[in-house]
Design a binder for these strands. Structure first.
Length: 932
RNA sequence: GCCAAAGUGGCGGAAUUGGCAGACGCGCGGGAUUCAAAAUCCCGUUUCCUCACGGAAGUGUGGGUUCGAUUCCCACCUUUGGCACCA
């Protein structure tokens, strides 16, 4: 700033001044009792990483802050808190490498990130700040775990109930009784195979494994059976689906959750295994029983049962060893061994060609008595459904591929739609090998003919028909539509007791334990006789022990197993051992929004009356990357707490808005290899590799350390101020859209703030600008003022911050030009600017002569009548093309508009020699003359 | 492969229910101010044809509905994000 302009916009001083004003006056402290209506605005709290915030974080925080400040001015009691999701792997890995306790690293990172957040001037109530790693907080995370542990899901009432209310069959032994109870708890121990990540030294939830490698770090993951804690989220699958309906969330996010839960409705069908040493009979009476085994399959297409020509079991299926034919024992064992060595990655991505082995055993198709072979293949997953399928190669693409690979029979039972058949013919999608093999080379290609051939040879194409159609080759069901057939066959199966309606979910129970130090310890102890016991609520928290060794223990347990004085203690005269697993990072974030309501309570997680007042969260803003994990887990916990009467709402987050990602500019070479930004050299408007000299292509990519395209907000705040930073992030585009970060528009919003400053302040004196007077504005300016209030009100309500800012720019451009401007208009302007750029607004408010903060001054009101233009430009079109324009009083009669339009010289000339066919008049907009 | 979102000037983006495409900002060009510069202010800026007046084309591509389509319908292409043998 130059010295002779003492009154210039000095953002540094202004921002410091007002941040300390807000802090020392506790301007944003939120009372829990007031007669104002409440509004709860929540941000997804950050993980305090060592790198601090990047420019993506403040985007969501700015948006929520704008709404918070706006709602306060609208007279709401606004709860707007902030905290830190501070347990997690990075601090622990840092501890392993540098020997510094995670608590120390975490505290250091938090104070850095807190400073960054405060420097943006967000209106949080800092007295409610929380940190998931503090015992005062995780005490209650453990408390909620005990609630889960001590509850079961009542399938009839469709809700969780205390475990004491579980009805236990009377005739059980003590052991079976315990087992029965364990099998119903919402938190339970399990020994099933889990995703073990050797590099991280811990297990991971399914959701944390992407394509066979860990989501964090990309390390290989293997399947390994281990004792783990699970949460019975699958019990809530239907509730989690149903609850979505009334939520004000983007459709895409709801869809992601629906897909993740993956509900499918179909039938379970029993296939009897047929052991026939003679191997002679091809078709059997269905009543024949030459078997002790039954294979249960799940299918969504019971209508295709007549087309089941073989079965497939997952290699891990327990019946494989029981049923297999001795002659096939060797290849089957080989295959099982190979499959067990394959990682998930190999089993999915790389397995383009299907593999499998015949067990030599047969099953009987329950609907037609046909004897069908049983194979094993890793395209059938042990973890979904029953781990076994009936294969209908004609109408399932996976079975189709497998059948072609191994020459298994393919029988059509659904006659395809005309459209599909035509498409196949048109694409010439014929399988030539199949045609040759079946002597069908001279196949006719007309539609009716092809259907005939298809119905007997569904293998003629390269694809299976998987859609809905009409039943064929299905005995008495022939001619039925797929949907009706499904209903009819399920009834039939149920009548014959060989199957029933069934529902399956992709969602699995939530693997809830990790072998780490830096997480919440489980409030669980193990007795020497193997009995498990929960620690009493009143003895919480179970504190993390002090240690200097953060490496995983040699037993595969967490580092907690290395602290014997913590691990063992005596209870009722018996030596007991603590649970060494810790909870995953998601635990703390599953209920933090409830703790904000009563952050300092040391008697309960929160006060019930306060919870009742504040919940649900009215607006939740955060990144779409948490669409499934965090949001699904938190909803699950919330529903359990609701069932137990601990919270008052069934769903926690009423409205959800996902801000888009801010992407970094990145570069790749001609081979598509990514090049870090510090190796890029710009010459003119082209980009080159500094070392190889190759030309590079610019594109946008997620910000990441390795690409060196991370932008830190601190630099921008230093050079332009946080008001500019806030405004710029909002001006870049719609909140929900992904957008690349580039500094192009930064200058523009900064200039806008300077203009706004000069509109009100005399830049030489720093006092009120002489042009600001106590007088009425002219009609045009008055109209602009009311239009601006109207637009700002609408745009903030609908998160259109970019257009809100552009309207304020228009306001500044116009009022800045005027020789005189009313003080009242300036005050309205400042109040409207306040949510977006609060520091400069507070300063301008003071210069306009007010003593106190504007944070609670009522939002300006507009008069609808004053937003309407008295004269409106009418467009005249001929055949839809604009030919002329003229001014007209607003609300003029259609007749007069039409006459005026026809009378103008231009239109008269244009219409010469043409016949008018039709004239369309749209009030206040246009006249369209159709003529030729 | 499947699902979701999105394709508009040199760039970010704007356009109530179908009704003047390109608001606002960046950049660029010209001018004013200045000893000069920065800053500021004013004018212009979709493309093509034309000295100009004016005209033509134009919202990913191709069709369709309509007096009129960035907006609605069908097919396709591209980008981003998610899922990925879930029977």
């Amino acid at each position: 700033m130059s010295e002779n302009n003492a009154g210039n916009y000095n953002f540094n001083d202004i921002e410091k001044k007002w941040q300390s004003f807000w802090e020392s006056n506790k301007t944003f402290k939120t009372p829990d009792t007031t007669d104002k209506p409440k509004y709860y605005i929540l941000d997804m709290f950050p993980y305090p990483s060592g790198d601090g915030l990047h420019v993506g974080h403040p985007e969501g925080y700015t948006a929520s802050d704008i709404v918070s400040r706006y709602k306060r001015m609208q007279g709401f009691n606004v709860l707007h808190p902030m905290g830190y999701d501070a347990f997690g792997l990075p601090a622990e890995q840092y501890a392993v490498q540098h020997g510094i306790h995670p608590a120390i690293t975490t505290e250091k990172n938090i104070s850095n990130i807190r400073k960054q957040i405060k420097s943006l001037g967000f209106s949080y109530d800092w007295d409610r700040e929380i940190n998931t790693t503090q015992p005062e907080y995780y005490r209650w995370t453990q408390w909620i775990f005990l609630k889960l542990y001590n509850s079961f899901y009542d399938a009839e009432q469709k809700k969780a109930r205390p475990i004491e209310e579980l009805e236990i069959p009377a005739d059980l032994s003590d052991d079976d009784r315990t087992k029965f109870i364990e099998n119903h708890r919402l938190a339970y121990e399990s020994n099933t195979p889990v995703n073990w990540c050797p590099a991280l030294g811990t297990v991971l939830a399914n959701e944390e494994v992407i394509g066979g490698v860990s989501e964090r770090g990309g390390h290989p993951v293997v399947r390994k059976p281990m004792r783990q804690w699970m949460l019975r989220i699958t019990s809530y699958a239907d509730r989690l689906i149903d609850g979505l309906e009334d939520l004000d969330w983007a459709y895409g996010i709801k869809k992601l959750q629906l897909d993740w839960i993956g509900k499918s409705i179909g039938a379970e069908v029993d296939f009897k295994v047929y052991n026939d040493p003679a191997k002679t009979v091809e078709v059997l009476d269905t009543t024949i029983e030459k078997t002790e085994h039954t294979i249960k399959v799940f299918t969504t297409r019971p209508d295709t049962l007549f087309g089941a020509t073989y079965m497939v079991l997952a290699p891990e299926h327990p019946l494989v060893d029981e049923i297999l034919d001795d002659q096939q024992r060797f290849p089957v064992e080989m295959y099982k061994h190979e499959a067990s060595l394959k990682s998930d990655l190999d089993r999915t991505d790389l397995a383009k060609d299907k593999t499998g082995v015949d067990t030599g055993a047969f099953a009987i198709n329950p609907v037609n008595g046909q004897k069908i072979p049983i194979w094993i293949s890793d395209y059938v997953l042990i973890s979904y459904g029953t781990g076994a399928i009936m294969a209908v190669p004609s109408h399932d693409s996976r079975d189709f591929e497998f059948a072609k690979q191994f020459n298994l029979p393919i029988n059509a039972v659904v006659s395809p739609t005309d459209k599909w058949l035509e498409e196949q013919v048109q694409k010439k999608n014929f399988d030539q090998d199949y045609l040759t093999k079946n002597k069908l080379e001279n196949i006719t290609e007309d539609a009716a003919g092809i259907r005939q051939v298809y119905n007997n040879h569904p293998g003629i194409f390269n694809d299976a028909f998987c859609g809905l159609g009409t039943a064929i080759n299905s005995d008495k069901f022939d001619g039925m539509a797929t949907e009706d057939f499904k209903v009819a066959i399920i009834a039939e199966l149920e009548k014959d007791k060989v199957g029933e309606k069934a529902v399956n979910y992709k969602l699995r129970d939530w693997l809830f334990s990790r072998q780490r130090y830096w997480g919440e310890p489980f409030p669980i102890i193990h007795h020497e006789d193997g009995k498990v016991e929960a620690i009493d609520e009143k003895d919480l928290p179970v504190l993390l022990p002090e240690t200097e060794n953060f490496k995983p223990s040699t037993t595969g347990e967490s580092p907690l197993a290395n602290v014997p004085e913590w691990l063992y203690f005596e209870k009722d005269g018996k030596k007991v051992r603590r649970e060494t697993n810790t909870m995953p990072q998601w635990a703390g974030s599953c209920w933090y929004y409830l703790r904000y309501i009563d952050a300092l309570n040391n008697q309960a997680p929160f006060d019930k009356a306060k919870e009742n007042y504040w919940m649900p969260v009215d607006l939740y803003i955060g990144g779409a990357e948490h669409a499934v994990l965090h949001l699904l887990y938190a909803r699950f916990w919330h529903k359990v707490l609701f069932d137990l009467g601990i919270v008052s709402t069934d769903e926690p987050f009423q409205k959800l808005v996902n801000q888009g990602m801010i992407l970094g500019l990145s570069y790749k070479d001609p081979r598509g290899v990514l090049v870090a930004n510090d190796l890029m050299e710009k010459k003119g408007d082209k980009f080159f590799h500094k070392e190889t000299g190759e030309e590079l292509v610019e594109f946008t990519a997620k910000m990441s350390k390795s690409l060196k395209n991370v932008v830190n907000p601190d630099d921008i705040i230093r050079d332009f101020g946080s008001d500019t930073m806030r405004l710029y992030e909002m001006f870049m585009g719609p909140l929900e859209a992904n957008k690349p970060w580039n500094m192009n528009g930064l200058e523009g919003v900064h200039r806008f703030l300077q203009k706004a400053w000069r509109m009100i302040v005399n830049a030489e004196t720093g006092k009120l600008n002489d042009a600001v007077v106590d007088a009425e504005d002219c009609a045009e300016l008055l109209r602009l003022r009311h239009k601006t209030i109207k637009k700002l009100t609408h745009d903030i309500e609908t998160f259109g911050f970019n257009t809100a800012i552009s309207q304020l720019m228009i306001f500044t451009n116009e009022f800045g030009k005027a020789k005189q401007r009313s003080k009242a208009a300036m005050e309205d302007f400042v109040l409207m600017l306040a949510p977006l750029a609060p520091h400069i607004a507070e300063e301008l408010w003071a210069i306009l002569g007010h003593d106190d903060t504007l944070s609670y001054v009522p939002w300006p009101k507009y008069d609808e009548a004053l937003t309407v233009d008295p004269e409106i430009e009418i467009v005249v079109q001929i055949n839809g093309k604009v030919r002329d324009k003229f001014m007209m009083d607003a609300g003029s009669d259609d007749k007069i508009i039409e006459e005026t339009a026809m009378a103008t010289e231009k239109i008269k000339t244009q219409l010469e020699g043409k016949t008018i066919r039709k004239v369309i008049v749209i009030k206040n907009r246009l006249v369209n003359i159709v003529a030729n």
